[in-house]
Amino acid sequence: MGYKFFTMHHKLITPLTRSTVLKLHAGDTVSLSGEVITARDRAHIFLLDNCVENNQKFPFSLQNGVIYHCGPIVRKNGKNYEIIAAGPTTSSRLEYCTDTLIEKYGISLIIGKAGMGQKTLAGLQGKAVYCAAVGGAAQVLAQSVKRVKNVYKLKEFGEPEAFWVLEVKNFPLIVTMDAHGKSLHQDIREISQKKLNTFLGI
């Protein structure tokens, strides 16, 4: 498909402005530093319900911010929380609402595993990017988490589903869906589907 892997490596610091987002292209790599907020299934339902119906004020801002599809293992170490392991979870489960959340909250970057679909790709256009982290690499990724800044909804949602506000340094990522309509996941799926059709003779 003519990907020039590693054509660009970007060192990014949050918050991420629109002009920064537009410089990123599928196939590029990123080292991300700054603030990242974890959110998975329950957190997404919460964000969706509250922004659409109540426009409730949140204790954290997602404007130009980063959402990480991750349910970490966290333990209390004295007064502070310690991240034990923090790799990405499957992003496709959140396909139904991510475009809405990007629109409503002004999110700039989504981090997750294995990419998202057409609805999200359309939602990213001109505004935001999706980056993949290596699935299962929870120790490598945890090393890049410098501290837990805060946590919300821990009691109600439980450890994997809470909003963990993390400070990260040089978090290693791959841009796989950019703000210009390109999706590496979609390209790989098309190539493998063609091969499959050849194998099956259909």
Binding site: I84, A85, G87, G136, A137, A138, Q139, V140, Q143, P172
Partner: peptide
């Protein structure tokens, strides 16, 4: 390479390989 690095860190620190145990 990232996966192999992860496997080595987890074994050395005796911490879970993946956050999804």
């Amino acid at each position: 390479s990232t996966i192999v690095k992860n496997v080595d860190i987890a074994a050395r620190k005796k911490k879970p390989l993946c956050q999804d145990t």
